[in-house]
Amino acid sequence: MNFYVIRALVMRYLFLYQRTPMRLVELVFWPLVDLVIWGNVTVFIQKNSDEKFASFVLFFLGAMILWDILFRAQQGVAISFLEDVWTRNLLNVFVAPVRTMEYLSATYIVGFLRILVTFVVMSVVSWFGYKFNVFQLQWWLLPFFLNLMIFGWSLGMISTALILRWGQAAESLAWAVPFFIQPFVAVFYRVEDMPAWSRPFAWLFPATPIFEGMRHVMDTGSASWSMLGLSFGLNALYLTLAGMLFVRVLNITRKRGLLTKFATQ
């Protein structure tokens, strides 16, 4: 891996944001809309519940903020790739001495930077608007953040592989992939509140232990280490499989000669 290659690829995305500040609006606007909606719902529930539940129900806002970490990481990876497709730049990158791992690393970093922007904005607004302090998760926040981001990267690679394989027709999938799994990862409710048949599926995803853990910390001040371990373990598996899928699809694309058709169409 060459650090300067990754730095150059990341620089490209930074130039892009500098050139078109509208992209920043997208990074800030939708998360704010979500936050306000969930914030207002929370206020409504708080007014109609006892004191203990009223403070617990703030977890909606925590869920919103954590979900956005996953979502932004996925988008960072998928959109970085699409950006190269949209600008007919893919061929230039693929004929340059860029290793697949370097290319992917750059998209991971872009994902991380995107998260930072939304995370800061949402944390500040949820504190001043709704008295929700995301840092009440204390040091747990760190592994939560990390796990959701890594899972987002994996989903991003899966989205990208789909687009590589099926062309731009599959583009809308790039946006939809996180929402396919959202119902199963217990973002806004506990696993025990899910229909019985769907509960086993919840534990197939590394995000579920994190959302459960978040509620646990808010409730009791601590989460379970074994849950955290489960999340890291599943993440290692997903990251490996998603990486393998991406490389495999890239090779198939080369073999079939689809890369060039796709990159210049």
Binding site: V5, A8, M11, F15, R88, N89, N92
Partner: peptide, 24 residues
């Protein structure tokens, strides 16, 4: 190639700096 382009939404020097970076 006449059939590929450098990203149209960046300035010329930005595009060239990126590729200069990639090629070290």
């Amino acid at each position: 190639s006449a059939y590929t382009a450098l990203p149209g939404n960046l300035l010329v020097w930005q595009n060239l700096s990126v590729f200069a970076g990639i090629y070290g």
